[in-house]
Amino acid sequence: MTDATGRTATPVLSLRDLTVEIPTRHGVLRPVDAVSWDVEAGEILGVVGESGAGKSMTGNAVIGLLDPPARIAGGEVLLEGERIDNLPLQKMRRIRGKRIGMVFQDPLTSLNPLLTVGEQLTETITRHLDVSDDAARTRAVRGLDEVGIPAAKDRLGAYPHEFSGGMRQRVVIALALCAEPTLLIADEPTTALDVSVQAQITALLKRLCRERGMAAMLVTHDMGVIAETADRVAVMYAGRLAEIGPVAEIVGSPRHPYTDGLMASTPAASAGQARLRQIPGAMPRLTRMPDGCAFHPRCPRVQDKCRHDPGPVVGKADYRAACWFPIEAGEDAA
């Protein structure tokens, strides 16, 4: 891919046919199935899907935190052009936290309740960066300051339980960013928060990515958050990539019938209408994946071909959809 100046830039994160498998007694399950995408510096890629779509599993595969027996069974994960999916544990540990920052849904469980936030921040900083304790403290204060925690200096000695939910999530973000990673993986970072606090946190993430030129993968099920925060969107369904492209195209004129149904079923999209558009049925279980396109049992545009053959990937470089019969511009979906 080329950037605005015509140079070829290496994407911060590239997934190449990433496949995760879980061997079970009932056969091998595939929660992530041949997923490929790039995230450029300074870009926020939103990953959406319903529960069980494999979006968190993809995030965990990138940072090497899959719970066994789940394992990467195929494909590659490249961080700034360098393969990281086959690194030994020790090397991966040095990348995690240093080059890849992580923010999870529940801020209370991602902080150690027995250590002050100052101790947690300085520990992370001294572990990953070669700085003195004093410099680490200064950095910790600056980190808290940057995420908008008032009187940051005095709050270093406070324990996680002394912060409110929104402030705690800010601490987690400060912790994820204190070693200046090039990639941030945020897994449902605002789901546990109230609307007004959610707006504060998403605005913060956007500002930090822009200022630092950091790439981010934002995993969420909330279309509204994606529409406002992400530059590009990847839609996942049953472990596969359904559609990926610029946010305006995915939200405004989706071409995959699943994305279209997902957008239409949010109450915001049908304001003033008596009934919401619904997608019949539910996502297939991994143990009972249908043949062909995984979405075909629920798809309004299904034809014979879809039942046997997973959809082809259509589209150009920055836009792809996996569908036999994608919705054309101006066409009514259902």
Binding site: S196, A199, G224, V225, E228, A248, A268
Partner: peptide, 13 residues
Amino acid sequence: APRLDAFGREVVP
């Protein structure tokens, strides 16, 4: 509240 039609909207939180 996040909105679907507001990509790139600069929210003043």
